[in-house]
Amino acid sequence: MASPVTRTLRFSPAAIAEAARLIAAGEPVAMPTETVYGLAADATNGEAVALIYAAKGRPSFNPLIVHVADLAAAEGIGVFDETARALAEAHWPGPLTLVVPLREDAGIAPLVTAGLATIALRVPAHPAMQALLAATGKPLAAPSANASGKISATRADHVRASLGGRIALIIDGGPCSQGIESTIVAATGGAPRLLRRGPIEIDAAEETRGIEAPGQLASHYAPSKPLRLDATTAEPDEYLIGFGPVTGTTSLSPSGDPIEAAAQLFDLLHQADAAPEPRIAVAPVAGDGLAAAIRDRLSRAAAPR
């Protein structure tokens, strides 16, 4: 994939229209929020989400925060109990991310949630991100707009220094008012749990660093069956997930495209886990970038538990 020429446009109706056009075409766009700049893509499009990881060079597939326009939109994607709804009503729009159970019919790409049954949702307060949500009519996955492992971007020039040449467009909305990532609270039943401290102080029952929170990867989704890596053929009791020249029961990407493979990864792992075969095998996934991230996720899924 050729490196794009990265343009920077000041926040305006015309800039939002161009950002919405790119989002509809499946490309990520750097956008200001009140916390940090985010790299936004259509959360219902797995290949668009894979391009976020490709641009960031993210070393593994963490669950991503999904930005929505309002609580009603959030409730169409996640299941809100009384606790979650009270937190949302008190702090949205604003720098609070709520982790709630994912609705089965939400239409969110599995890559967004890293295969988990929960989803991280936020209603941003920044007018530029709200304008883009209105223009696209889509939930937007948007991790911080910086190369993985680098300092989060709070100005458009920070984004350009980190991601210039990797993305097509940066919307410059000025400096972020908060400057640190959102508070993350899990509201999945019982008392809320603080997963990441941030601008909003929440009285949570406990503070944990769990697998539900973006950026806190430990061992995310793993199938219930034994998983064998680098398989070129299937044993009689295995469900083989192919890649490139290795055909299988199904394939991450028959053409060997890592973007397609990343978009399909968690969905195919779930399919394999539900299949009658007692074991799963996965073909070799060679290459750098997204291919390396896929291998990292698979190695974690295959680790003894």
Rank of each mutant, 00 (worst) to 15 (best):
R228S: 12
G190P: 10
A274K: 07
I211Y: 01
R279S: 14
G289C: 04
T250N: 06
A286V: 09
P236K: 09
A168M: 00
G189Q: 05
Q264R: 14
Q216L: 10
Y239N: 12
I167H: 05
E207Y: 03
A186D: 14
G242I: 10
P175R: 00
S182E: 11
G287E: 04
D267R: 11
I241A: 06
V282I: 13
Q216G: 05
A272E: 05
I171R: 00
G179Q: 08
T247I: 11
A222T: 15
T232K: 14
S251Y: 04
A213P: 02
V246K: 01
Y239G: 13
I280L: 12
A204R: 12
P258H: 09
P175C: 00
A204D: 06
A281L: 06
H270I: 03
P226A: 07
S251K: 08
R295A: 09
G215I: 10
L195Y: 00
E235W: 03
I241Q: 04
H270R: 12
A291V: 06
T250R: 08
D288T: 15
P199H: 05
L252G: 01
A291S: 15
P236F: 08
E212T: 13
T233I: 13
P236T: 15
A222P: 11
G174I: 06
A272G: 13
R209E: 12
P192K: 07
G287D: 05
C176S: 13
P223K: 13
G174N: 04
E260H: 01
G215D: 05
H270M: 02
S253N: 12
D203L: 12
A283T: 14
T247Y: 01
A292V: 11
L265P: 02
G173V: 12
A168G: 07
F266Y: 14
A263E: 07
S182M: 10
P223I: 15
R209Y: 05
R279G: 08
E277Q: 15
A274P: 00
E206W: 02
P214E: 11
F243I: 15
A291W: 01
F243S: 10
G289F: 00
R196Q: 03
A231V: 13
E206S: 14
Y239D: 10
S182K: 09
S255P: 06
D296V: 08
R228H: 13
Q178I: 15
S253Y: 07
